[in-house]
Measured scan of single mutants.
Amino acid sequence: WKVTVKGVEYTFDNPEEAKKFAEELAKKKGGQIHYKDGEFQVH
């Protein structure tokens, strides 16, 4: 499971962890999460 933040990729074994990480980042940066092709992208 991948989380991509401004072109930087983070990989997680667990989808729950990936989702949590993406949500935290989106909150911090005031961005939005897009889920696409099996990965979370924070913009």
Rank of each mutant, 00 (worst) to 15 (best):
W1Y: 10
W1D: 01
K2I: 10
K2E: 01
K2F: 05
K2L: 10
V3F: 03
T4M: 07
T4W: 08
T4E: 03
V5S: 13
V5A: 11
V5N: 10
V5W: 15
V5P: 00
K6I: 11
K6P: 10
K6M: 14
K6F: 14
G7R: 02
G7V: 01
V8S: 09
V8I: 12
V8T: 11
V8A: 13
E9H: 09
E9N: 07
E9L: 08
E9M: 11
E9D: 06
E9R: 05
Y10V: 04
Y10Q: 01
Y10W: 14
Y10I: 05
Y10T: 03
Y10M: 03
Y10F: 11
Y10H: 05
Y10E: 01
T11P: 09
T11W: 15
T11K: 13
T11H: 14
T11M: 14
T11N: 12
T11L: 15
F12H: 00
F12S: 00
F12C: 02
F12G: 00
F12P: 00
D13Y: 07
D13W: 08
D13F: 07
D13T: 11
D13G: 09
N14P: 00
N14D: 11
P15W: 15
P15C: 14
P15H: 15
E16F: 11
E16L: 11
E16K: 10
E16C: 09
E16V: 11
E17Q: 10
E17A: 12
E17R: 07
E17L: 09
E17H: 08
E17Y: 06
E17I: 08
A18T: 00
A18R: 00
A18S: 01
A18G: 01
A18Q: 01
A18D: 00
K19E: 09
K19V: 08
K19H: 10
K19N: 05
K20T: 10
K20P: 00
K20W: 08
F21M: 04
F21P: 00
F21S: 00
F21G: 00
F21V: 02
A22L: 05
A22R: 02
A22T: 02
A22P: 00
A22S: 04
E23Q: 08
E24K: 08
E24G: 06
L25K: 04
L25I: 13
L25E: 12
L25V: 13
L25R: 02
L25Y: 12
A26G: 02
A26K: 05
A26Y: 03
A26N: 02
A26T: 07
K27R: 13
K27H: 13
K27E: 13
K27N: 13
K28V: 12
K28P: 05
K28G: 09
K28S: 12
K28L: 14
K28M: 12
K29T: 15
K29M: 15
K29N: 15
K29D: 15
K29Y: 15
G30L: 04
G30D: 07
G30S: 03
G30R: 05
G31F: 12
G31C: 10
G31E: 07
G31M: 12
Q32N: 09
Q32W: 15
Q32R: 06
I33S: 04
I33T: 05
I33Q: 03
I33R: 00
I33W: 08
H34D: 09
H34R: 06
H34Y: 14
Y35P: 01
Y35H: 05
Y35M: 06
Y35S: 03
K36P: 04
K36A: 13
K36Q: 12
K36N: 10
K36W: 09
K36T: 10
K36H: 12
D37K: 03
D37I: 01
D37Q: 05
D37G: 04
D37P: 10
D37A: 04
G38K: 11
G38L: 06
G38I: 03
G38A: 05
G38R: 13
G38N: 12
E39D: 07
E39H: 12
E39L: 06
E39I: 14
E39V: 14
E39P: 03
F40K: 02
F40R: 01
F40G: 03
F40T: 03
F40D: 03
Q41L: 11
Q41S: 10
Q41Y: 09
Q41T: 13
Q41P: 04
Q41N: 08
Q41R: 08
Q41V: 13
Q41G: 04
Q41A: 11
V42A: 03
V42H: 03
V42W: 06
V42R: 01
V42G: 03
V42N: 03
H43E: 11
H43Q: 10
H43K: 09
H43S: 12
H43M: 13
H43G: 08
H43Y: 12
